[in-house]
Nucleic acid binder design. Structure first.
Lengths: 116, 116
DNA sequence: GAAGTATGTCGCAAATATACGACATTGCAT
DNA sequence: ATGCAATGTCGTATATTTGCGACATACTTC
């Protein structure tokens, strides 16, 4: 596969990029925000709120579920999706660690000049 | 394009997903970490450190540069890349806001049961 | 100016991602 | 049982991403 050399990267790097990929589509960001805002973990109403076909939304939901960022519970005929806040918190910490590492180091000079 | 309906999403959602996409590949995560760790904003040495061809690395660099997450300064024959820490800090804030929003709301019940 | 090196761009091939209609499945109601 | 509604999966078409060799460009050195 095109990702043949993925194994050559750190497990940390791979995980971060995997989660980032989950957020790499506005629909999935919107889904998470929707789930966060609605008190009820709406089911197919999600599809109604998004400018996408029900099929496409379902696939985005599956992608998020595959990473366990959200969870679905079958409630009779409908399905309730909700956020996995524990995982999201852990992911938040990882992103924070990454950004702190990236922003603490040396950067461009004041006039966009590199220090090297 | 397949993204025809992208415009239907919030500007915030689009921006977040765009940055997330930039981090959606381990090589790009690795590049940022490399730039953060090295005091000197190495140039083509980046390619040497990654398990990818120089061409592929160059393309990843261009993608990061397109979002202004990194900047390149030509220094004679070599090119110095460095992190745009200011932007990274702003991005960090956006991600934090997103995750706080996502983790503060109602979540699954204690036994993975939704509250609806 | 000629040769050599560091970079970036172009063109192509293969892998993924995205979107959606059609179909299968499951549960509720009559 | 039968019919209807809510979901998910499959197959398929199109767009995007990824990777790399080949080539073009720019600069240094001799």
């Amino acid at each position: 596969m095109t990702y043949a050399k993925t194994a050559a990267f750190t497990e940390e790097q791979q995980h971060l990029s995997r989660v980032a990929k989950a957020l790499a589509h506005p629909a999935r960001v919107a889904i998470i925000q929707l789930l966060a805002s609605k008190q009820t973990c709406i089911s197919g109403d999600i599809a109604a709120e998004l400018p996408l076909s029900r099929t496409a939304v379902s696939q985005h939901l599956q992608e998020l579920k595959a990473l366990d960022l959200i969870r679905g519970e079958i409630d009779g005929l409908t399905v309730c999706y909700c956020l996995n806040t524990e995982l999201l918190q852990r992911v938040h910490q990882q992103f924070t660690a990454f950004f702190l590492e990236a922003t603490s180091g040396a950067a461009c000079g004041p006039d966009d000049a590199c220090a090297c």
